[in-house]
Amino acid sequence: MKDLYNVSASPHTFDYESTTSIMRDVIIALIPASVFGIYNFGLKALLMILTCIVACILTEYLYQKGMKLPLTTGDLSAVVTGLLLGLNMPVGAPLWMGAVGSIFAILVVKMLFGGIGQNFMNPALGGRVFLVISFGKIMADFTVPNLGISSPAITDYIAHGALAVDGITGATPLTSLKAGGSVDILNMFLGNTGGTIGETSAFALLIGGVYLLIRKVINWRIPVAYLLSFLAFMAIFGGKGFDVNFLGAHLFGGGLMIGAWFMATDYTTSPISSTGRLLYGLMLGIMTGVFRVFGNTAEGVSFAIIFCNLFVPLIDKYVRPRSFGKGVEAYE
């Protein structure tokens, strides 16, 4: 028999979910979009995603080794950052650019501010915006070479991607919409269009979003408030009124879906209370609308999320739930 048993303060039992299991769920949720991106854009897309993931893990590992900090690469958060950044890269960008964005995301946005849980903006988005500002032309170039293969084999899809094989031009639907062209909503929903590697298929992203909802990793408030307020804004200020084609194109186009389900819901850079989350979603919808309608870059969602990230500490400070029984006085 032991002389001494362990003692500690209660509670003595814990939920089995941990930071690592949550990150694992996010990775699982991004698999449909990743697979579709690779199908759409070919082997290069896979290489880009892997480059970003490896660069993110290495940056975090080397920084923590160098600074003699405890290693946290095992919590998989660097993998999530790398994966998200990879999915946010255009397939035409050189691989080293993905690595540079990853290093910026992890080193500057995450580690220099204190590591996981301390960053004031989403690291993947920070990395992407850094690249957009540094290499604007390449980051906004979504053209895919038309290979004109007459009878494509599966290996052709893997090597070159569906878009290059089928000869669909890579211009993004929102660009052509702005230029006055028409778009095919169904194709946009499925993702047979140009764009960054992971953002094109609203369908694949929704599968991931629903998975996260079911696993209770994310809450409906931010994405739903974001999407609804964005649609309302576009209906009012978009200039086309309640035009289903126009609204649908904006809903499924650009980075809105990946932003609403995977970027805006990033724990560290979104509010902690339910009301705060609704407010944050509302702000995101409006800001995205403003950037898309009145801005002249293709970065509506990225800028809106980064901009609203800055308000999160303020929202957390002033939007708190009312504590149980507050203000109740003794009955007479």
């Binding site: 362990n6 500690s8 003595h12 039992t13 814990f14 941990s18 930071t19 949550i22 946290t72 919590d75 958060s77 590591g115 996981i116 849980g117 301390q118 809450n219 724990y267 560290t268 979104s270 509010p271 902690i272 209370s273 989350r277």
Partner: peptide
């Protein structure tokens, strides 16, 4: 003893 098993890590602000 689950308390001894789980190590504390950084808050990720999950809510």
């Amino acid at each position: 003893d689950e308390n001894a098993y789980w190590e504390q890590t950084s808050c990720i602000h999950c809510g």
